[in-house]
Write a protein that binds this DNA or RNA. Structure first.
Lengths: 187, 187
DNA sequence: TATCGTTGTCAACAAGTGTTGGCAAACGAG
DNA sequence: CTCGTTTGCCAACACTTGTTGACAACGATA
């Protein structure tokens, strides 16, 4: 077990404030000073505990999608369950929002995003796809729809997308994801 | 007709350099100095001709999707034609990339993005959708898929999405857009 | 040629950035 | 209690940013 330090509370406060700021402002506009102010401490403490801004972001952007076990779900509901899970995960943790905002103009964040999807969505697709060779493509396509939805809803705030409630969003997106999982394209 | 000015060449060079920088770096990391250097002029000229960075971006982010007339296309090809058009438009003009990169952390750019999709995609959906009341939602859904694809391909550079050639991308995405245009969700 | 608006350069400002080092107080072990 | 370590604050650094104003070369017009 890791030893308790007297500063653990401060460390956690910094991390929370950092996630909020990165999520709201992106990497460059989220300043160390603003994060420190939110955490009610001095900016220099951020440096002491996290080294530099880059490492602070790396620590704040740690993320686990916690994808459910698809073996327990009927095959025709796989798309719906994935969409529901993503929506909930997104609403309940601002880390993903911080990640997408930062990834757009920050290569390290983009790399993190690639890793998350390759390492966490990839295996799910690999287990379900009819032809395992197409798994990476299918995982990528799911990412385009899920990230695109998050982009339009949480970042760009397109009014008709913001207006959708959870059920409507699932009803629209689930067939798309289902198709990316199982269909073979052709016309 | 607008009068010719001796500085028109410089103005155009600034605009081109601005688009490149905004597309590559986003709003904040694209500096006036870098743009001026690319255009081989002094940074102060940028201010003289465009007022400030905000207005320069507004000028650089002027964009017309040039959506084709869907009345000339068979109904079952609408999704495919839209996807093809978006892909070509995206590949041929970095303005859209600049817009998406900037929109993520810059409210004015996000507003521009909302306007473009509401004013240009909205009417197309309104003309095609079975129920006009659902047109805005359908246009928004199309935006989620198209922007999500662009995000993953050009910004995040997800390998499996970068690897898709034009035909494969169209084959995968067209049915999604077609469904967002015409289907009524339910299960 | 003399004049005036245009085009461009140079140097500087004020503000904000990440980051560093020193110093005081609080704490825990001996 | 005493001493070394941890925690925190303050002031400052080196640098970059958008932006401004003064000034020199140029071009057309009179």
């Amino acid at each position: 077990m890791t030893a308790q330090r007297r500063s653990d509370g401060t460390r956690a406060a910094i991390l929370t404030a950092a996630r909020e700021r990165f999520a709201a402002d992106g990497f460059e506009r989220a300043t160390i000073r603003a994060i420190a102010a939110d955490a009610n401490i001095d900016p220099s403490l951020v440096m002491r505990y996290y080294g530099n801004k880059e490492k602070l972001f790396a620590a704040a952007a740690e993320f686990d999608l916690r994808l459910p076990d698809m073996a327990l779900v009927p095959a025709d509901r796989h798309g719906a369950v994935l969409v529901e899970h993503f929506l909930d995960r997104w609403a309940g943790d601002e880390t993903l929002l911080a990640l997408i905002r930062a990834a757009v103009s920050h290569e390290a964040a983009a790399e993190r995003m690639r890793t998350i999807f390759a390492a966490q969505v990839g295996p799910v697709a690999a287990r379900l796809a009819p032809d395992p060779a197409t798994a990476a493509t299918r995982a990528g396509l799911i990412a385009t729809q899920i990230l695109g939805f998050a982009l339009c809803r949480f970042v760009l705030r397109l009014p008709p997308i913001v207006a959708l409630d959870r059920d409507a969003a699932v009803a629209w997106l689930a067939p798309t994801v289902q198709r990316y999982l199982y269909d073979t394209p052709g016309h």
